[in-house]
Design a protein around this nucleic acid. Structure first.
Lengths: 353, 353
DNA sequence: CTGTTAGCGCCTTCAC
DNA sequence: GTGAAGGCGCTAACAG
């Protein structure tokens, strides 16, 4: 039945005894073709083992691929490990599926071939997961001139941006973390793509090229100053990612130091969960000996009673997709809110809640 | 600088004063072009705002898209929620990134347009996440004649299959679950795409069209019979998915019944975690009052001390990708092993471990 | 309802 | 190192 070579629409049309267009219509606008012609075409297709119109040829002709590209920063595994990133992807997928679009994941490895792989992806638009100011992929995406939306940051001229106001949210949650504390500390996402772990004074921090990290640090600084601290007094531990295990290790180090913190604002709920584990191990009562805050309001935050910043990454993913598809423009800043639970001190006195 | 219309290689070549082929070589085989010609081309491209070779045209001409399609069953959100599925995707992504391939996620919604969306995806091959015998997407994938690998099942003529021996593994873990028990029960994945929750006798189960579910049920049956039970005596609760919350609800119902089970074999670790939560709520000691087993050896299994079936979904994802890329063929059955922890009774007497 | 024409943008082939 | 021709497989646009 099937020939070994690729079967084309022209061959099907010939065998069916109709023109190529009739065969094409049979697949694309079946209602426009007579029953008779249609069945002849389908029968011929069956006989030849025709696989259906070739997607690449169709894309070329139509000028659209019906696919959106999603650029995920280095370490795809970590992206999938992060419940926030996963929710974001689910939001994109929902919109894509609803509009008949596919969704191409473009994993970035850090190797030089990232750029051609992104540029060469057959997609109608891009969604870029938070990255650093200096990520070469940003320029590559812009160079394609296809619609592109960046989530989180950085803001790039000509590309859309969907994000919460990280600085404001960090300031708000930071106040909850630091209120009533004497030695505030921060558990930070990496500052730059090198992703090294460090512990040090806030004043000694090198410039952060991840805008999301940078803005949250600024917000925590606002919070520290608002609650009576100098930025220099704040200890900042930098993690390589939003991961409980590493956070636990760093938190254990902090808590075991000569001058342990009594408040830790973390940039992610997974990190905060690690901090709670370290606190338990150290015999530290939360929130009395140690206040802890997270970020994202993931499932773990509710389970552990974490005070955190709530935002819907899923919804933001959906918005990114809509913007990339041109269904929506100029999204105002995404919504966020504070979720106050038992991991922070009550500002009106102990046990006030 | 940039014109509003799409810029083509021919226009770049013309402005650069070279032939189209020289321009093409500049992008694809830079070494083959003189420095002079190359810089003229790149300058012209810059001036015109040329976005680089069009991916669809290139795919058509080359006959390959450099992308793999991954078909994820209904409810993409759930897929991302399932740590096993996520590990599987990470394994695929790893191989894809390493070979310069993209990875297109094809979410299945259950709507009739699933088939054209899958068929029409510009991909070189497919990886299909476990589905039911009657899923129309299977036929569609096969009809494309592109390489395709199914994970888990069903086995389809002409398509590759990567899976563990579910029946054997279920029999093995089932023996651990049921040993020393008097009223064995099973917490099952859905039987068919309808995904309804039910509780009933094993003998009354309708035919399962999800082969993975079916084979695991058969294995548990083997285990039940091997440990002295008739299949009719086994209670089976069917969940809509591998999710802790739903499992907890069903387990609570089981444990609150007139004749509560004292052993529950679950098809997933998340489900098993839900069972443990229900047991705790019901004041049921594990494993003495209730033995519990899971499946996958996810992170939660280690944390909760669950006896479970270990398999590397990540590795299986990688294998699927390699097979789909034609780098590997006829994969033998994937490896699995038993991980015995504290959620099951010791076969040599209490506390033997 | 069916057919003809004319490319979509690029790259393989083969010549120079 | 460079170029001319031709066509990958399909469908928009326009007849009839």
């Amino acid at each position: 039945m099937a020939s070994s070579k690729r079967v084309t629409l022209a061959q099907v049309a010939e065998l069916a005894g109709v023109s190529v267009m009739t065969a094409s219509y049979t697949y694309n606008q079946p209602g426009r073709v007579s029953d008779q012609a249609r069945s002849k075409v389908l029968e011929a297709a069956e006989r030849l083992g025709y696989a259906g119109p070739d997607p690449s040829a169709r894309s070329l002709r139509r000028g659209s691929t019906q696919t959106l590209g999603v650029v995920l920063g280095e370490h795809l595994t970590y992206a999938f490990d992060d419940p926030g990133a996963v929710a974001f992807l689910a939001g994109i997928a929902e919109v894509c599926a609803g509009r008949g679009y596919g969704m191409t994941i473009l994993p970035i490895t850090g190797a030089p071939d990232d750029v051609p792989r992104v540029t060469g992806a057959a997609v109608d638009g891009f969604i870029v997961w938070t990255t650093s100011d200096d990520d070469p992929v940003l320029a590559a995406v812009r160079a394609t001139k296809r619609p592109a939306v960046i989530h989180g940051g950085p803001a790039v001229r000509g590309l859309e941006l969907v994000t919460v106001d990280n600085r404001a949210a960090a300031a708000a949650v930071g106040v909850l973390a630091f209120a009533g504390a004497r030695r505030p500390a921060i558990l930070s996402f990496p500052l730059s793509r090198e992703r090294v772990s460090t512990i040090g004074r806030a004043a000694d921090l090198p410039h952060a090229t991840f805008p999301v990290t940078r803005e949250r640090l600024q917000g925590y600084r606002d919070a520290a100053e608002r609650t009576g601290f100098a930025w220099d007094d704040v200890v900042v531990a930098v993690c390589a990612r939003n991961d409980a295990a590493e956070a636990e290790r760093l938190a254990a180090t902090l808590l075991g130091s000569a001058d342990p913190p009594d408040a830790i604002a973390a940039m992610g709920d997974q990190q905060a969960a690690g901090v709670l584990a370290a606190a338990r191990a150290a015999g530290c009562a939360v929130p009395d000996d140690l206040a802890v805050t997270g970020w994202d309001d993931a499932e773990v935050a509710a389970r552990l009673g974490l005070t955190t910043v709530a935002q819907s990454l899923r919804e933001q993913g959906a918005v990114c997709a809509q913007v990339a598809l041109g269904q929506q423009t100029s999204p105002r800043a995404a919504r966020w809110s504070l979720v106050r639970r038992s991991s922070t001190r009550s500002s009106t006195g102990r046990g006030a809640r």
